[in-house]
């Protein structure tokens, strides 16, 4: 087994939304190129100790846990802990799992695109950005050594409609976290509650190195929009990205410097690629692990 796959096997990936499958229902999926079967167990009564869901990879059961309104799986024998999102415990937020979208791109490219601000006015025109407000102002990026995460802070960007709840353009503040190679979490100004931040995450299930299922999830303050409105706002945004992502070349993400020439606006991307390289997260990367 190659080192990139061995590394990726120890991380957790979303496989289904909670409640997606009716009791007794099963579905086929794939994680890291391995076929998996997801079965929602038909538990007999409340005292039954059968877990609600069983996931098997090539016949053998794998590690399963629930978090952030999704079922997560780990196919490795030494699972790393799943990252935390503290806001998931705040009862006054609206939790919005947005459903799966399949994208023919490297799982790493899906994450990297989510971290990019510069494309907002061109891909999400009139919503997350608009010309002539295209400048990406200086912001800070670092690797948080204790949590081993990439963190970008002090990001400010003008957005015509920053969220479903926004009425008119606002200067939006962003913080990005990359807590795992195939997950990204952003915090942005909440239009209805300026002292708080909305949370939007992208959980990526790697089907293989060039295909992924993406499960967006949100934890918002919004007491006016319907669930359908919130989901469709997020799908509008993400499906605008999808057609761009499927056209990015090379299909796998280059993480060695030298393939591409980054600009100042790409600081987060540069930090993400370095961090992937340092931890040996080469699954979905252009280069073979040295």
């Amino acid at each position: 087994m190659n080192a990139a796959l061995e590394h990726a096997l120890q991380d957790w990936y979303p496989i289904a939304m909670l409640g997606e499958l009716a009791p007794g229902e099963r579905k086929q999926s794939r994680v890291l190129g391995i076929d998996v079967t997801v079965l929602a167990n038909d538990s007999a009564d409340e005292t039954d100790s059968t877990p609600p869901i069983t996931v098997r990879a090539e016949g053998a059961p794998v590690h399963v846990q629930q978090a952030f309104d999704h079922w997560w799986v780990c196919l490795g024998n030494a699972p790393k802990p799943l990252f935390s999102i503290e806001e998931a415990g705040e009862a006054d937020r609206r939790f919005v799992p947005c459903g799966v979208v399949r994208v023919a791109c490297s799982p790493l490219r899906a994450v990297e695109n989510f971290l990019d601000i510069a494309h907002f006015p061109f891909v999400h025109t009139g919503v997350l950005g608009a010309e002539p407000h295209t400048e990406v102002y200086k912001y800070d990026v670092k690797v948080d050594e204790t949590r081993d995460e990439v963190i970008a802070t002090n990001i400010k960007f003008y957005q015509p409609q920053a969220a479903k709840s926004a009425e008119g353009g606002i200067q939006t503040e962003y913080i990005y976290r990359v807590p795992a190679p195939m997950a990204a979490v952003l915090y942005k100004t909440c239009p209805l509650k300026p002292e708080a931040m909305d949370v939007i995450a992208l959980f990526v299930q790697p089907l293989d190195e060039q295909t992924c299922d993406v499960w967006p999830w949100m934890a918002l303050y919004d007491d006016t929009s319907t669930q359908a409105e919130l989901i469709q706002f997020q799908q509008l945004i993400f499906l605008q990205d999808r057609s761009i992502l499927e056209n990015q070349l090379p299909k796998k993400l280059p993480i060695d410097p030298g393939h591409e020439i980054p600009t100042k606006a790409d600081y987060t991307s540069v930090a993400y690629r370095r961090w992937l390289k340092k931890r040996g997260a080469y699954y979905g990367a252009l280069e073979a692990q040295p």
Partner: peptide, 10 residues
């Protein structure tokens, strides 16, 4: 009137 076609199958 948005209808939750996916994932809700509304």
């Amino acid at each position: 009137k948005p209808v939750d076609f996916h994932p809700g199958k509304a």
